[in-house]
Simulated assay, not measured.
Amino acid sequence: MAAHPSALAGYHRWSVYYNTTSGDMLLPVGYSQDAPVPASEYTGAYAAPYTPATAEVRISPRSAEILDRLLAVRRETPGAGGAPPSAVLSQQFLGTAYGAHTLVGSQGVPEQLVIDLERVDCFTLADYVEALKRAETRDQFIDALTAVRYQDGLVGFASRRHFFTDWSAGSPPIATDVTADVSAAAITVTKKLNQRDDGGTYLPGLPVSRREVTYIPAERVDTGVVDRLHPGDYIGAYAEDGGLDVTHVGLFLAGPDGPVLRNASSLSRDRQVVDTPFLDYVRSVPGIVVLRPVR
């Protein structure tokens, strides 16, 4: 503040949100005590509990039934040993219809927390699987999906994680970018995410974000790279377009005949969630970005 007095404008009259052992709090403006006060006493006497605004949840009766079934599978899925939870949970989506543009929210349309389990695209499939790994009840799933889909758990179009690498670059991170760890042949390029070649934006209302994106060229993805991947890693198909990081997303998993990419395919021959032989898929794209979930 002393070095940059103008920064005061960014804090003046804003309440401070703070997590304590007594719960989440909005700290009051100012501090009127003449001597130190135990935090438990101070928060109990002066700070108000934080109650976040409840976002509108949009879920159909059929999706609610599917969610209950998925949560039952989750409760029966061990957290360690055997197949990873992501493999078991994503398997429940095999054959689910492909559906684009299921989320609601834009520059001019209020964001809704959509739970559509009757049809998914590649990224909502990843959203739902990752949220299911973190939940055993409906309420826990809603909280987990909010944390996975939105920066800092704030439901809104501007805070939605629109790009794959938002999972590793955002707050809090959902995954770690391990692309460079998986291959010494990885290449890092600078992207201007959301910027179209014609000067416009892919998503009106969102800023252009400068980001370093690391990928492994498809021709350098060999058995050594595959051996360093973990079941449950999220794989993005690298985009050559400078305004995008990836064009497609799926889960790397072990299949009966070798590794597969479990993904919601928009190809006319599929139009559903399928298992695609991993190396066959890699040969069809410029390269891959690898994110490893933190849970």
Rank of each mutant, 00 (worst) to 15 (best):
L193E: 00
D197F: 04
L145M: 08
T214C: 07
Y150I: 00
A185L: 07
T102K: 15
T190D: 10
R138S: 04
I187D: 04
G200P: 09
G200H: 11
P204N: 02
A158E: 14
V155R: 02
C122R: 12
E136R: 14
R161H: 04
L203W: 02
R211L: 10
V104E: 12
K192E: 15
E219A: 11
T146N: 03
P207N: 08
D181W: 00
V182E: 06
P110C: 05
V109W: 14
K191A: 03
S159H: 09
Q107H: 14
T176F: 01
P204A: 06
A158L: 06
A218Q: 13
G224P: 00
C122F: 11
D116E: 15
K133H: 13
T176S: 13
G170K: 05
T190P: 03
Y150F: 14
Q112F: 01
A97P: 01
V225D: 11
F123Y: 15
L103S: 06
V182H: 06
T137L: 12
A97T: 06
G105K: 02
E111M: 07
R134I: 05
D121W: 10
V225C: 13
D222R: 04
S183P: 02
F141W: 12
Y202T: 00
Y150L: 06
T190R: 04
V221N: 10
V109E: 15
G170A: 07
G108R: 12
L117S: 06
F163N: 02
T165M: 11
A186G: 01
T214L: 13
T223G: 13
Q112I: 03
V213A: 01
D166H: 05
D222C: 03
S168V: 00
V208N: 08
W167F: 13
A184T: 13
L145A: 09
L193F: 01
W167V: 04
I216H: 14
R119L: 00
K191C: 09
